Simulated scan of single mutants.
Amino acid sequence: MDILTVEGPYNFDLVLSRLALDPLHVVDMEKRFVKVPLLIDKTPVVAEVQAVGTTDEPKFKISGIEEPYQKQAQQRIADIFQWNTKLAPIHDFFIKTDLKEIFTDHRGTPLFLEFDPYSSLMKLIIHQQVNLKFAYTLTERFVRKFGFEKDGVPFYPLPETVAQLTVEELRELQFSGRKAEYVIGIGKAAAEGYLQYEELKNMSDEEIYDTLIKLRGVGPWTVQNFLMFGLGRPNLFPTADIGIQNALKKLYDLPVKPTQEEMQTYAQHWEPYLSYASLYLWRSIE
C-alpha cells in the first residue's frame, strides 16, 4: 500500500462522479475509491485508488497490486489520473475567460483517461450515433458477455477474443451490423499490435490521426476523443460533438446550437487548453 501526494487543486470526488456514470466502473463515492482494471504484461491486475486528501492537498492510497507489477501499475495509474499535470495554471487561465463560472464550479477536475487505449477506442466506437444511456447499456452488454472479471472488476474482452467474434453474435446484443463490423475490426487491429500505449503516447497528434483514420468506423470525432481520453492530449475541441454544442448553447443562451464557425470563434480564446474547455463544458450539462 502506498500513499501518493500530488499538486493541487485536484478534485478526485468530481473524477469519481464522472467515472460513476459508466456502470462498468467499480466506484464507491462514500469511501472515495475506484477499482482500476489494468493489463500488465498481459496479466490482469486490479488496483484500488482511494482519495485520502482534499482538493487543495490531494493524497491517494493505492492498494491491491501484486509485487511484480507495482512499478508499472503505479506509472500507468499516474498517467490515467494525470497526476503529473499541474491544474493550477490551467485554472488560472480559464478564470479570465467566458468559462470562469464553469471552471470555478468544477475546480480541480483533471483530464483523466480511460483505463487503456484499446478499451477507449472500443468504447468510442460503441458510443457512436446512439444516445448516452443506450451507449452505456450496449457497452455493458458487450463487456459482460465477452469480457471477464477479476476481483469483481470487469475487463473489456481481449482483442484476440473480439477478433474471433461474428457480426451475428454482436447483433444479438442489439449492435447494428455496421457497428459490429467496426468493433471486430478494432479487435483485429489491436490483436495485431496496432494500439500499443507506449508507442502511441510518443506519436504526435497528426501521426495518431493518420494511423487511426485508416480503421473502419474511425472518423475525426473518434480520433479527437481518443486523443483526449485515450492519451490526455490537451488541445482538442471536437466541434461535431452534440454535448459541446448543447453546453455552448446553454452558456451563451443561444436560441439554437452554434454553428461550426461560431464554435471555432469561441475556441480561439481557449487555446492551448481546448481539451480542458471541452471537458468542463461537458461537465456543465452532465
Rank of each mutant, 00 (worst) to 15 (best):
L99V: 08
F103P: 09
N84F: 03
R144G: 01
D2H: 12
I80L: 08
F112W: 06
F142Q: 07
K133P: 00
A190R: 09
Y118A: 08
T211Q: 13
P37D: 03
D210V: 08
L170Y: 10
L16Q: 01
S284M: 13
K257F: 10
Q260L: 13
F33C: 03
L227W: 00
L39Q: 11
Y266I: 13
R178I: 10
I244W: 01
V256I: 11
I95F: 00
V256R: 11
V34R: 01
W221G: 03
P238S: 04
I208A: 07
R216T: 05
Q75H: 07
G187A: 06
R233L: 00
Q82I: 02
K59D: 03
D28W: 04
L19A: 09
S63F: 00
A180L: 07
A267Y: 01
Y69W: 12
A190Q: 06
E271K: 14
D98M: 08
Q82S: 09
P23E: 12
G219W: 00
I244Q: 04
P58F: 11
L173R: 08
F229R: 02
A247Q: 07
Q174H: 14
D92G: 07
P234K: 09
F94H: 02
M29S: 11
I285W: 15
L24I: 06
I77C: 04
N246V: 10
E261N: 14
E101K: 15
N11A: 13
K188W: 04
